[in-house]
Design a protein around this nucleic acid. Structure first.
Lengths: 188, 188
DNA sequence: GTCTATATCCCGATAGAC
DNA sequence: GTCTATCGGGATATAGAC
């Protein structure tokens, strides 16, 4: 792992555990095992570090939805797997995503950076929705089913769970929760 | 409107429009039309101002769920109303709620303050769930329906919509969206 | 590429006059 | 209750040696 990656890893950990306010250049440098000056040899400024952290989160959510193949396995089983993975993902990345709201500039910068990759926070919803549409075409969902809403409901619940997880640290069985959510959305 | 309220209003507006990072004592004082020193005559420190802003948001969500009466109106109509109101509420308060993750201390302080009022972010979900349970008892929902999951799905989707609203500023028809979400959750 | 040392700035908070 | 003036501290970022 190169210096750049060590810096990003340290920044990620601090943001997750302490919040954006504590993720100072001094703290990041200390946690990564370098001097503050080293940070600026690898990143133009602090915002670039932060954007790097966010970018490193994106692929994980993407991969989550990549192995969704219409017609394979059971529909409910597939949805439970996706939903429970999403619960874990949002729980981990919520503090970092929330940091975007620290400043309007940060939000705008991240949106632009992400936009260049043709992605965004709507991507998971839209990909899950696409999967459901395909399943409907295969006859595994009633023709009256609404894929967009189903995807928004499942991932929305997972997203909010990410917030709640950080409110109290109450342990939640992600799979059991996912199973109940899916059951309430997918007609038998 | 007294000085204290003016300060809170100014702080709320800045946090919403600019983010927590820009909500400095200097900016808040300027926007409220007072000096920085005046802030400290009405609040012990900056955290107390922030907690005041958050507290002023709470009642609105509470009121939203107060007029839910089991057996009155149509079940779907009631849910559409609640869901669309929730979409608006979360959209407005998301940046402020997200600021909680700026620092672990802030999150803890707010959680403790809210806990003393016997409330929290789980309250809306649990109240909506209670309403649905009552409707199920009245026979307006099948006995197989899962009130907890239904509430988590609807309010979760509304919550995530609050985030997405700030991503792009794409206008969303809250009522139309709510109608689709409710339809996907409530069996006919 | 990495360090030590430092410049510059601005934040939260207080002192003290009125 | 509100102001002006200011303090101490810590943040981002840079200079310059190695």
């Amino acid at each position: 792992m190169g210096t750049r990656e060590k810096i990003l890893a340290a920044a990620t950990r601090i943001m997750r555990e302490q919040g954006y306010a504590r993720a100072t250049t001094k703290e990041i440098a200390r946690a990564a095992g370098f001097s503050e000056a080293a940070l600026y040899k690898h990143f133009a400024d602090k915002t670039e570090i932060f954007l790097g952290v966010l970018a490193s989160q994106l692929p994980r959510l993407d991969a989550m939805l990549s192995d969704l193949t219409p017609g394979r396995g059971t529909l409910r089983g597939n949805l439970v797997r996706v939903t429970s993975t999403a619960i874990g993902f949002y729980a981990e990345s919520f503090p970092i995503a929330a940091s975007l709201f620290s400043s309007q500039d940060l939000l705008t910068a991240h949106r632009d950076a992400v936009h260049d990759h043709g992605a965004g926070p709507r991507t998971p919803v839209s990909r899950l929705s696409g999967y459901l549409r395909a399943e409907r075409k295969l006859g595994r969902l009633p023709s009256t089913a609404d894929p967009d809403s189903m995807a928004a409901l499942l991932l929305g619940a997972a997203f909010q769970q990410g917030f709640l997880k950080h409110w109290d640290t109450e342990a939640v069985d992600a799979t059991a929760l996912a199973r109940k959510l899916v059951k309430a959305v997918v007609p038998v």
